[in-house]
Design a protein around this nucleic acid. Sequence first.
DNA 1: TCATATTTGTTGTGGCGCACAACAAATATG
DNA 2: CATATTTGTTGTGCGCCACAACAAATATGA
Lengths: 396, 396
Amino acid sequence: MTKADLSGGAPRLIRHSNVVAALQALFDQGQLSRAALARHLGLNRSSSGHIIAELLASDLVREVPDTAPQTDTPVRAGRPGVRLELQPDAACFVGVEIGVEHITTLRMNLKGTYSHCRIEPFDGRSVPVAIAVEQAVAQAFDGMPQDLRDSVEGFGLAVPAQIEEAGLIHTAPLLGWENEDLRSLVDLALRSEFPVMIENDANAFAFGESYCDRANRAGVTLFMVLESGVGGGIVIDGKLYRGGHGLAGEIGHMHIRDGAELEEVLGRDHLLQRYRVANGGVPVSIRSFLNAVQRSDPQAVAIASDWAQDLAQAIVSACRLLDPNRVVLGGGLAALYPMVATQVLNRMGELQARTFPCPKIVVHKSAESGAAFGAACMLHQRFLSLENEMHLRGPK
Amino acid sequence: MTKADLSGGAPRLIRHSNVVAALQALFDQGQLSRAALARHLGLNRSSSGHIIAELLASDLVREVPDTAPQTDTPVRAGRPGVRLELQPDAACFVGVEIGVEHITTLRMNLKGTYSHCRIEPFDGRSVPVAIAVEQAVAQAFDGMPQDLRDSVEGFGLAVPAQIEEAGLIHTAPLLGWENEDLRSLVDLALRSEFPVMIENDANAFAFGESYCDRANRAGVTLFMVLESGVGGGIVIDGKLYRGGHGLAGEIGHMHIRDGAELEEVLGRDHLLQRYRVANGGVPVSIRSFLNAVQRSDPQAVAIASDWAQDLAQAIVSACRLLDPNRVVLGGGLAALYPMVATQVLNRMGELQARTFPCPKIVVHKSAESGAAFGAACMLHQRFLSLENEMHLRGPK
DNA sequence: TCATATTTGTTGTGGCGCACAACAAATATG
DNA sequence: CATATTTGTTGTGCGCCACAACAAATATGA
């Protein structure tokens, strides 16, 4: 559609920009003919053909055999085009999450499908940074065949911590880390030249979900990750919004009512604690609490109702400042939302004097691997962006 | 020799992009030689020379006579360069604010300096939209000489309203407007082909202040306009952030404490109301209140202290979600901040369990004409952007 | 079954914009 | 006054894209 920003540069740069745009279009659309690609990029068919020739030569793109099933058949007259798609094995991206209780690792190929998701128990609080990184890297790369290892083009790491621009950790209260140069540790453990990105886990999660949801990539999306605490991330027009210090979206620490932080009120711990007390001190799981709400257990319903009120206020506050198009609820507690959706919406209406436009609120069926997946997505995107200098010179 | 070549192709676009970059550099730096410009844009001197030749021919840029005073003399060896600068009169941008009590109009030239600022009383609540627009346009253009009128390249209008993408007004409670197609009305009143932009007044204000503060354009800035109400705007990396519905930054309607909106607690009306009651019902001005705080009048100090607490909480809330680099306080009440700055900062420290990084908080000496100025800035920026197709074909 | 229309992919040509190199001009330094 | 340094200009070459022309492959209609 639009040829990306081509400032300052030489004719070479415009090619670079178009190559990247072609790759992105192929990722978004799945399969395209040369002619369709040309229309998509606003280029001439001949130019499109040249770009594809270059990408075929460098093995980033392949032609789909005619035997493959048609995605959709518009049945137009004229010579049918050869469908092209990204070569899945042309690159591999590794996504890792170091959590408080688990280390999650997975691999993603160039088409964006992931595999080899491994979740291993891990005691984040008692392990120093260097060991944690070593363990994570081992978990990600152990048993990976050499040819796949050679095709790795990015390593993404998600951590429950505030991450400075350059990959320095300012503070990670849940892990007990402080002022650690995580970036250097990772570089040391990897000793490779592919790009590395380190990001806050909620931010990575937010980016990952938004990256896959192609339809909703435009606009502003606020993600709330409802687990034992409440994390959050913001994605604006497909780009992760980090704020000035990488803390944007950390809605859990916002103050709701006097003195209370959102996290304390909306998090799993608070909910189960209340339900346990109401139930005479019997420990309960989140699953059983949800079931209780489902079957209209009065005590559970009352707790859920309070939760709905607070959630509404949190979302309304966020709307005033951020004005998102969408709010996506993730994490284990998100399943509670559908049971109290109308309450939340009603309360939101009450809280707004004027009739402000409301964002769509949706629940995402969060995979356990959300943050690791998102970290991999970040490097997938980087690979298909102007930052990747691989596409700068032709394949030779 | 007719050159009907309409779409000269991609090479043409790269030139366009470089022309725009050159204009922006000249605006930012004030004066540059051809060689310095080339370094700035990462271009070869010869290319820079060609671009400048084009801009000289179209009279957007002029050479500075040697007689002019040197800005700074680095005193290097070698042939001195001819300094170039934007031709101030090459374009004129009109900025207008339709407020509740005033209409403000001003003109801005290509170098970004403004003049002819007129503030006329106006009763927004009793005047229908069409009349208001007519009056604003008249105030802006009456007495403008024809040649200047011909050089107008943009018209910016700021209104205390929620503005949809296309210039539709959703609702303007202060003016009593609702669902008005302001864009069409303006087009009708102007009957001209220069670009028109319509924006919320706080947003325009925020953009304007950020546009001039070249040093602080990078990063995230949250503006709070403290007047009778509390408005706000957000600028990210020099771009106005509007959110999904143009409501971003409307921090005044955020809920602080139970039920109370920020606007009701931080606004001028609330402050003066409290001070008046404490003073036995004598009406007071904001000026006298500030003086009372200055001379440590206990009642005024107590009120100011409460104000500081609430401001601190508002800023902390904003930080959790938005994480700005800077908070800029504008409007008539901003003058109160320096008197209670330490209280605000202390309270912010208390409210943050962890040691979060704090944004810089600064007071802007808001010109009365802030929103109109910002509206003009928006069109100034548009003129120097890729959106301006004027620079697409050479001057002929 | 065959002619026509339509779409695709490829090849050759031309134009545009940038980098590079070479040169003249203008200034500081010793 | 000679040398070094920087500036601005001119000519050459290259890369990239648009355009036109063409062959190939398919649907449609008679």
